[in-house]
Amino acid sequence: MANSVERAVGIDIGGTGMKAGIVDLVNGELVSERVRIPTPEGAKPKDVLKTVKELLDLLGPDAKGLPVGICFPTIVKNGKTLSAANVSKKWIDFEADAFFEEGLGQPIHFVNDADAAGLAELRYGSAKEQPGLTILTTLGTGIGSAVLFNGELVPNAELGHLQWNGESIEKYAATSARERLDLSWSEWAGRLQEFYDHLEFLFSPDLILIGGGVSKNPEKFLPLIKTRAEIRIATHANNAGIIGAASLAL
């Protein structure tokens, strides 16, 4: 490798759970058990930092001294978080890099969660050497998105916040909407169909990838969705955020 770093820790902070693992940056694979702790109620910065420390402790001595990348469901620019969709409003205009570096006593890299998943797919997965426009969507508490064009990430694309019936489309079509409204898989797939029809109308992607927790059950909804572009589950599924966040060490 051109870079001497071969392993790093990736931490994926979600609206409901926080996950971490040690990643082999040569092959883009988890080389530790994936550890998970529920996201603290309200997801305030100080509580999230405390949980990050707990995750690092759970990973044990193998994680000591490794670079750390953290991904999070918010717009991230120059180390600062600029939005807060499913977390505390304290993250708006918050110096996240500096806060975590001070709290952990080491340099870290902070990135949007869907962008991290996009980086994992670009570097080690379905979008590697994929020409044209790829849109990765992560379906979970909300809908995250990564826009990938000819091998490059276009950061902070918030396609889950496209307006739909007067509010963000993620309120209508995220996995949480299926659970909240007790929708059948086919009813939910109908909502996803509207979301992907809208994406295709606006962007005409060449490939659509699906990540997030629901990507472990593709047989329940994916055959019910029809798109012009090829649509498939992301290679790294729900580990993509961890792998992509860790890859920022490169």
Rank of each mutant, 00 (worst) to 15 (best):
I22P: 08
E187M: 04
G42D: 05
R34S: 01
T134N: 06
L148G: 00
E179A: 04
N239H: 11
R228Y: 05
A189F: 03
D182S: 15
S186A: 14
G132K: 02
K216C: 07
L136C: 08
L55C: 09
A173L: 09
L25Q: 11
I92N: 03
F195D: 01
T16R: 11
S204T: 09
A174W: 11
L139A: 01
H236K: 11
K46Y: 07
A63F: 13
K128S: 04
P223I: 08
S184L: 05
I92Y: 04
G60D: 09
L56N: 12
Q130P: 00
G125K: 06
K50V: 12
E95P: 15
E6A: 12
L25E: 09
K53R: 15
I225Q: 06
N27D: 14
W188F: 08
S4G: 11
G15E: 02
H109F: 14
I231D: 10
S32Q: 08
E129M: 00
D115Q: 05
K220P: 01
G103D: 09
G241A: 01
G140I: 08
V52K: 12
G140E: 04
K171W: 10
A63P: 10
A120I: 02
F203Y: 15
G144D: 05
S4P: 15
F110L: 15
L224T: 00
E158W: 01
E54P: 00
V35E: 06
A98I: 01
G211V: 00
G140R: 08
I92G: 01
T16C: 07
L192V: 03
E95H: 11
G144Q: 07
E230N: 13
L82F: 11
A245Y: 12
V31A: 04
T134F: 13
N239R: 02
A2V: 14
A2S: 15
N78L: 03
K50R: 15
N3M: 13
N165Q: 14
D62W: 01
R191I: 00
I13H: 01
P155E: 14
L207V: 09
E33K: 13
I208D: 07
F221W: 15
I243E: 02
S145M: 07
L56V: 10
L56I: 14
W164T: 01
M1A: 14
N217L: 13
P45Q: 05
L136M: 13
A120T: 06
L25M: 12
P73I: 12
N78W: 00
D57K: 14
Q163G: 07
F221M: 10
L30E: 01
G142Y: 05
D47V: 04
A98E: 13
G105A: 03
A249M: 09
H109N: 13
K90Q: 15
E121S: 02
G125P: 05
S168M: 12
N78D: 15
N86Y: 08
P218T: 05
E194A: 10
L248F: 06
